[in-house]
Simulated assay, not measured.
Amino acid sequence: MRHRNAIFPNTKRLVKKLRYLFETALVESAAWLLPRLPRGIIMGLSRIIGTLAYWGDARGRRTALENLRCAFGDQYSLKERRRIACGSYQVFARTFLDLFWSARLTKDTWQDFFTIHLPKPEDEDQARQTGAVWVTPHFGNFELVSMVWGFRDFLFTIVAQDFKNESITRVFKRLRQHSGHTVISQENAMLKLMKALKRQGHAGLLTDLNIAPGKAATTIQCFGLWTCVPTLHVELAKRLGLSIMTGVCRPTPDGRYEVNIFEAIQPKPDEDTRELTQRVWDHFEKAIRAHPECWLWMYKHWRFRPKNLTPAEDAAYPSYSHASGRFTAIMPVKESAT
């Protein structure tokens, strides 16, 4: 028995090593091949891979359809929700294929693929002088929207989750740093971001993650339902006196992207963190309502819900959500008494 136990760990390590080698070879091959393909092929692959993922990912598909029902109610029929959910998979596929393809972009060529709408250029001028916190949700191409600003000499510090396979982490880090950004891990991220921002740097953050209730989180209204999101972007801006630059990057059918900057929010140190977080989200929700296929609907955006809801209120949340006392405790007082 001891002999068998000694063999199994070695076998598992070997299988894991071989799997990592295969994954790394696959990702490196994609990083070499995709920038060499015509734009039309990238677009076609995105649609094919996204559609296959939609039908192959039963759990994610159910989550997406349920999220759409909870967010929009009867606004869309089941057929329309399926179309939007499939479109979300296709946009997500295009996002990551384009991250690999983006190796062909340069300071001289990026404008062939992007149009930027900046209502108040003076907001960008101030950000260039002082630094800023740039935020976007998992909408459209959240990967390339930061890369564009790197080509425009706004160099971001970006927090990214590491893969279990360190070799894949290195590949994605290389791709994300293509325009001059610095990618850091989640460990001690706030301290690293503060150091960068104090040097008149820039931080790029995704703000629609659904996280457990705690000191680094707050509750906001998202499509009429309460959800728990990080407040890092707001706290950094408040502590350092910086602007929060809000915007999204929407894919267009012709293979290009349309970047919209909504507002440069300049929080005061004594402003309410939850209200500021809600203000940021409201811009994003408006964009999602206009182009729902661009958001990541297969993600569990409402994992937590308040306690002591009525049966009708409880039914408005997805089935995967669960009532949380800690969630209820950090809600606004007048709402937590519901």
Rank of each mutant, 00 (worst) to 15 (best):
V171I: 15
F156A: 05
F92W: 12
R82W: 01
A189N: 07
V133P: 08
L78C: 01
W110G: 03
S185E: 12
V159S: 09
G60K: 10
L191M: 10
F96E: 03
G180Q: 11
P137E: 15
D57N: 15
D153W: 00
F172K: 02
Y89G: 02
Q161E: 13
G140L: 11
L97V: 11
Q111R: 15
S88L: 07
G131P: 08
V171F: 03
P119K: 08
N188A: 12
R199H: 14
R61F: 12
Y54P: 03
S102Q: 14
F142N: 07
S88P: 03
R69S: 13
E124N: 00
G56D: 14
T182E: 14
T130W: 00
S185P: 06
N141H: 09
I184A: 04
T130G: 00
F154T: 08
T63Q: 02
S77T: 15
A132L: 09
A189C: 05
G140A: 08
R59V: 13
P121C: 08
G60S: 09
L105N: 06
G60M: 07
Q129L: 12
G140E: 14
T106P: 12
L105M: 14
F114Y: 15
D98T: 06
T157M: 11
K173W: 13
D57M: 10
G87D: 05
D162P: 00
F92K: 01
L99I: 09
G87I: 14
Y54E: 06
E122S: 13
F163H: 10
L65P: 01
C86T: 05
A58Q: 14
Q177E: 15
R81C: 03
Q161T: 06
E124D: 04
D112S: 12
A132Q: 07
V148G: 05
W149D: 05
R170V: 02
N141E: 06
L175V: 04
D74N: 15
L97G: 07
D74H: 09
T182V: 06
C70Y: 02
T157E: 12
D57Q: 08
G56T: 13
A53T: 10
S185L: 07
W149V: 00
R83G: 00
L78Y: 06
E122L: 07
R152T: 09
L191H: 06
A64K: 03
V133M: 10
L97A: 07
I184N: 04
L65H: 05
R199T: 10
D123T: 11
D112M: 04
K173H: 12
A189I: 03
L97R: 12
K195R: 15
T109E: 06
R81P: 04
Q126E: 15
G131D: 12
A189G: 03
R82I: 00
V133W: 08
C70Q: 03
D162A: 13
L144V: 06
G73Q: 10
F142W: 15
V159K: 04
D153V: 03
F139L: 14
A85K: 02
K198A: 02
Y89S: 04
T157R: 10
R170S: 07
L99A: 08
L144N: 02
V145D: 13
